[in-house]
Nucleic acid binder design. Structure first.
Lengths: 331, 331
DNA sequence: CTGAAAGCGCTAACAC
DNA sequence: GTGTTAGCGCTTTCAG
């Protein structure tokens, strides 16, 4: 575009402005900002000061263009898997952001009816995979690096520590004196739901004995509406528990609505614990928080490791209990 | 939300490859691809051929870097407005894609509790605005260009033709012989819901006379669950209509579920028309389709016009009826 | 109508 | 440790 080299700083500050301000070279600024080794601590500080003085923020497009690795990563979503769920939207948001600034090129790889990615990429992020997902074996056979979002031993994967989450929920509820519990979840054969259930069940068994297992209500529709209908149907001819552990915040919200319509006051007559800590969906909900940002960040790390041929590791991300307004002592 | 996975391939052809293949210069390729004037038709064709032969797709990052305008556009979402709705997610996806490739820099501008954008940008996209939204007057007073996603005369705005949509729904249902109708919607004082209702009501009045207005069920929770609960409550002591016009697909899905639980068979005993044509949510649903891609595209056009100081225009995008499986002749 | 070349802001060699 | 510089892929003057 042959604009004349402008010396005037108009618009957004560039790395050059920072360099001038800190009286160093652009290379040094870049190194300092990217935490590269071999920058004098003092220099580093000067650069940092200049950055905040100028309100500088690196340009993503330029960054991407400069560091781009010659690889394409495909996003493979299980055939028929819903992409408009909060979990998905939130995770993807973080993932795409991170991928771009890692210089990785993303492509949405459609999966054929056989569940296999239909296009070639250098690496793949597998989403919504079931334990026996054919895509896994397929990619392994191909020797193409991939990261599974979800947990599976022996596979490069990352997921929240679902077992621990289930345990935390159980322990929280037990601590509050609840003994009559219900677990509302999705297909328990899936890894996430299975593990959450396992953690929950084991903590219960440890505290109350094997014979006091909590009943499980499986929803095939994982929306708030699905949970609502399932719970109302369930409570039509089953005694109401004093506490519910819902395997996702959405399910929890559905339970909350059902409770409201049944005249069960939360948390006094019914306590509810969710899972995820979704913004908007479950404000005020006691829940097990998982970190979407970390999930995306680790996914990218693993992707890079896979591309380098590093040894496989399966990462479990810690989760926390967020005690908010939907749980209380057994009434 | 982040950019949508770009369609680009890696190891992928660059503009230079295309130039070589078509035996022209890169400048010419660029001009041809961007429909710049002054490219010989034959040359244009050669370039197009080379593009498809090579499967070339321009690199968004490079494009953005090269054409970037020195402006920042803010995204202002009404305080407390939900961002995880399908409508929002879908629209934003398209918008961010388009903005990036228009060289526009997007920033998420948080709105303070007063509903006003808290940061300065050169232009603003207003989302989730109510008719009396203070942000509008505020931006007008500031003289800062903005685009309202939604309709409002005298304001640079873009929205689906909601009135026409309501009319189409009514006409479709009338054509099928329905006379006992119910409209399920959100706050009718909002522009979109208000207009959809108006179109619906007017078409009904024109066909059946003023005295045969359809009852309106207002949901304050606009999710599928919200509609489900509202409709069940409503039908507890009101006669069932033979057809429902739901103001969004989500509301329609809630109605469908309620009908199922009440033993009302769709479409034989109850017809349901939605609005939006959301993927995943309302498969198989008869609905009024609005074009999210166009919505985003026009938003950007208007933004550019605003930045140039062009006269204000308020765009109405056409909508279509998609007759699918949830409507039938009155049983 | 077309080609050549200068940058967009950044990173990563390569020198010093 | 730090400066210099060559690009990343694209658009857009400026010549011809």
């Amino acid at each position: 575009m042959a604009r004349r080299p402008s010396t005037a700083t108009v618009g957004r500050p560039t790395i050059r402005d920072v360099a001038r301000h800190a009286d160093v070279s652009v290379g040094t600024v870049s190194r300092a900002l990217n935490d590269r080794a071999g920058v004098h601590p003092d220099t580093r500080r000067r650069v940092r000061d200049a950055v905040s003085a100028l309100g500088y923020a690196p340009d993503e497009a330029a960054r991407e263009l400069a560091i781009r690795r010659p690889v394409a990563v495909g996003l493979s979503v299980a055939h028929g898997h819903r992409r408009l769920t909060p979990f998905f939207v939130l995770f993807l948001e973080h993932l795409l952001d991170g991928l771009a600034s890692s210089g990785l090129r993303v492509r949405d790889v459609p999966t054929g009816p056989d569940g296999l990615p239909t296009e070639e990429t250098d690496a793949v992020v597998l989403l919504g995979a079931h334990p026996d997902d054919p895509r896994i074996a397929h990619l392994q056979a191909l020797g193409r690096p991939f990261v599974l979002v979800g947990h599976r031993d022996g596979v490069r994967s990352v997921a929240a520590d679902d077992v621990a989450g289930g345990r935390l929920a159980a322990e929280h509820l037990l601590r509050l004196g609840h003994r009559s519990l219900l677990h509302v979840t999705g297909d328990p054969h899936g890894q996430a739901f299975g593990d959450r259930h396992r953690g929950f069940r084991e903590a219960l068994a440890a505290a109350l004995g094997e014979d006091r297992a909590a009943p499980v209500l499986v929803c095939d529709d994982l929306t708030t509406l699905g949970a609502y209908r399932a719970l109302r149907r369930y409570l039509a001819d089953a005694p109401a528990p004093t506490a519910i552990f819902a395997a996702t915040d959405e399910l929890a919200v559905g339970c909350l609505a059902a409770a409201a319509d049944l005249g069960l006051r939360v948390p006094h007559e019914l306590s509810v614990v969710g899972f995820d800590d979704l913004p908007e969906i479950g404000v005020g909900l006691t829940t097990i928080r998982q970190d979407f940002g970390a999930l995306a960040r680790v996914t990218i790390e693993l992707l890079l490791e896979g591309l380098r041929g590093d040894p496989v590791r399966a990462v479990r991300l810690p989760v926390h209990l967020l005690a908010r307004g939907t749980t209380a002592e057994r009434g």
